[in-house]
Computed example of a mutant assay.
Amino acid sequence: MTSYQPTAPHQAPNTPQELLTVPQVMARLQLGRSAVYDLLRTKQLVSITLGRARRIPTRALTDFIHAQLDQEAA
């Protein structure tokens, strides 16, 4: 019997994005908690608040990284 392996859906521009927690962003950027919250406070990294939970869209993290790369290249 062959098992079915679903493939990851291809995201269209108007589909919802994955939301990351602060600890997930900390791990991806290899930064501490206060550094990530400083980025959020200064609006360098965009987030949304759901109740008391802070979530960062993956697109916002990607945009932040590209902006940092562009700034380093300039």
Score class of each variant (00 low, 15 high):
L50P: 00
N14R: 15
Q24V: 00
E18W: 08
D70W: 12
Q44P: 07
T15C: 15
P16F: 09
G51F: 07
H10S: 14
H66V: 07
T58L: 10
K43Y: 04
S34C: 02
Q24G: 01
R54K: 12
D70V: 08
G32R: 02
A12V: 09
T7I: 11
Q5H: 14
L20F: 03
G51C: 07
T7P: 15
R28H: 05
P23F: 10
A67G: 14
L45A: 00
K43N: 09
A27Q: 14
V36E: 05
R54A: 07
G32S: 02
R59H: 06
V22M: 00
S34Y: 03
N14C: 15
L29T: 07
L69G: 08
I65E: 08
T49G: 06
V22T: 05
V22K: 01
Q44W: 07
V25P: 04
I56T: 03
R41N: 05
D38T: 05
S34R: 09
Q5M: 14
Y37F: 14
Q24A: 05
E18C: 08
Q5F: 12
P9S: 14
T62Y: 11
L19Y: 01
R59Y: 03
R54Q: 11
E72W: 11
P13T: 13
N14S: 13
T62D: 15
A73I: 09
L45V: 00
A27N: 10
P6G: 12
Y37E: 04
K43C: 05
A8F: 12
S3W: 12
R52N: 10
L50S: 01
R28P: 00
P57Y: 06
V25Q: 04
R41A: 05
T21L: 07
A35S: 08
S3D: 12
L40W: 03
P13K: 12
H66A: 10
A35G: 00
Q5T: 13
E72A: 13
S34P: 00
Q24R: 02
R59K: 12
T15K: 13
T42L: 11
Q5W: 15
I65F: 05
R28V: 03
Y4W: 14
Q17P: 06
T49F: 05
H10K: 12
L19H: 01
T58D: 09
R33W: 12
R33C: 09
L39A: 03
A74R: 15
H10A: 13
N14M: 14
D70A: 13
R52L: 08
L20R: 01
R41K: 08
A60I: 00
I56R: 04
L20Y: 02
Y37L: 08
Q11A: 15
D38Y: 03
A60N: 03
T62H: 11
L50E: 03
L29Y: 07
A67M: 11
Q71Y: 11
T15L: 12
Q30T: 04
V36P: 06
L39Y: 06
S34E: 06
R28N: 04
D38W: 02
G32M: 02
P6E: 11
L39G: 03
R28Q: 10
E18M: 10
E72L: 12
Y37S: 04
R28T: 04
T42I: 10
A8N: 15
T58N: 09
P23R: 08
Q5N: 15
T21Q: 06
Q5D: 13
I48H: 04
